[in-house]
Amino acid sequence: MAGRESEAGTREGAGRRPVRVLVAKPGLDGHDRGAKVVARALRDAGMEVVYTGLRQTPETIAQAAVDEDVDVVGLSSLSGAHRVLFPRVVQELRKRGRGDVLVIGGGIIPAADVAALEEAGVRAVFGPGSSTSEIVDFIRKALAGRDRGEVVGEE
């Protein structure tokens, strides 16, 4: 286990290619300081990161995730639209046969909404004050689990 994770940011079973992450801003929210900081921290951790830019729809995000063949989609919203838009991204991924992608989220997300998001297939929510290393660790653990056969996306 320790050996498997010693290669920072790489995943087993796919020829050790780096973990690929899509950082996405669904909806009209223009606050992307957090998204950009997380994107950069994941890059520094050895992952390959694609940032979508602002104003993406769930469809364009899911399609980009397929096209970029990512392992992880990180969603960010500070506008309150997460309730509608995050679950829609999960659905759109499943429609495209990529329910296996690990979907995580962040932004201004009231604690009361977290359970519903998790129910909808968002695996973790990182609110204000989260450290980027927590996010890196979570992704590594979840993907290591997936490589052992655990389900990280669709149940």
Binding site: G27, L28, D29, R55, T57, S79, G80, A81, R83, V84, L85
Partner: peptide, 9 residues
């Protein structure tokens, strides 16, 4: 594009 955003912020 307004879906989920109306009256939010």
């Amino acid at each position: 594009m307004a879906e989920g955003e109306v009256g939010r912020v």
